[in-house]
Write a protein that binds this DNA or RNA. Structure first.
Lengths: 208, 208
DNA sequence: TGATATACATACATGAATGTATGTATAAAC
DNA sequence: GTTTATACATACATTCATGTATGTATATCA
């Protein structure tokens, strides 16, 4: 058996990426081998090596693949936000995605607990990770600066600081949830936290 | 050269633990070898193997060592809290410790970014990590339930939920700070977040 | 003042993951 | 229809971390 069609080859490439996420999130990046991945998809190491030069390259491709998948969700949720209600809805929808989309959850779990980020691997996935690491509050801050929203904020509240607080809450709750020792309802916790923060950030007359 | 005094041996044991934290946080757990650690302290692998049976055992001892160091700080900050002002001070003091105590910062960085937690390694360090993972909001919740504090909370605020929010904020801000891409002032961000949340959680007449 | 256990250093043996070279059947290009 | 590049499988070579066995000088203890 050899030489499949281009579609078949593309399919095995994707199956490698998915198997990589599965195994990386199960065993950790460093403990999974090309052999593990090949076995998982019913092929040999040769197949994996044909599609990806080495492990860092596979990691970069995998992170890129699922980051884009995540970015699409973020864009889907956080574009065209005009009001506080829409921001709240987007915040919770994005949270719900982490809690309910198994693949996204795996990816977030992998990024949070199953990866040791060396300088080398960071530069390998440089472009994609730069986005993530700048994103969490820049996007939020821009939304909070919209006149329709910032007008409701207390005058002593800095939109950027508020964005940091909201992003911090989101990152922290996700981490606690993914660590999953004391089981929490992620969406409910995010809703409570969001309301509490906004309740403190809004002018008295503009309560949610 | 051989057979040092008991004090000397204890000193090299500690130097191994410290070198382990240094190297683990620099290169990641999986990429550091016993050889690396031995070189760092100017000894051979034999010395490291004499003190620790293998890498998981060393990891467990190292985590135990620095977790206890951290626990002492937490206890130091979070016992005998009676008022909101004291809670705020403790919250910020604990945050400041992560930002300014180099060793604690290294440890938190290691736990957040340089460790892939397999089932095996989790059970190895079971007792210690159980503490950490239950801790973040149980301790906080207990404080928030103190009459002197809960009396100031709005009646629709659940102390436990508030604890989850505060813990989430803390974990998230630390993670963002330790990731350190968009530099933030951790202590200032924690103060702002704390105030904002509390401002939303307190009765109108009990503002900070 | 020996005897013994200690705190290492040194040497070796093993396995396991990596990378590469080679083989091969077949889709695609001409 | 032939050629060629593709999408793998197979085989081999190398490195490297681990673990263990052994050696040894010296605190410690009797």
């Amino acid at each position: 058996m050899a030489r499949k069609t281009k579609e078949d080859a593309q399919a095995t490439r994707e199956s490698v990426l998915i198997a990589a996420l599965d195994l990386f999130s199960e065993k950790g990046y460093s403990r999974t081998t090309f052999s593990d991945i090949a076995k998982r998809i019913g092929m040999t190491r040769g197949a994996v090596y044909w599609h990806f030069d080495n492990k860092p390259a596979l990691l970069a491709a995998m992170v890129d693949y699922f980051c884009n998948l995540r970015e699409e969700r973020v864009k889907q949720h956080f574009t065209e936000i005009q009001s506080l209600e829409e921001l709240r809805a987007a915040f919770l929808e994005h949270t719900r995605a982490v809690a309910e989309d198994k693949r996204l959850k795996k990816f977030e779990f992998f990024m949070a607990f199953q990866m040791e980020w060396s300088e080398e691997l960071l530069t390998e996935t440089h472009k994609i990770l730069d986005k993530i690491r700048k994103d969490p509050f820049e996007k939020l801050a821009a939304i909070l600066r919209l006149p329709s929203i910032s007008g409701q904020l207390r005058t002593d509240i800095d939109p950027r600081q508020l964005a940091v607080t909201l992003a911090g809450l989101w990152v922290g709750l996700c981490k606690i949830y993914l660590g999953a020792c004391p089981k929490i309802d992620l969406v409910a916790a995010a809703a409570d936290g969001f309301d509490c923060i906004m309740n403190g950030a809004l002018k008295k007359e503009a309560g949610i």
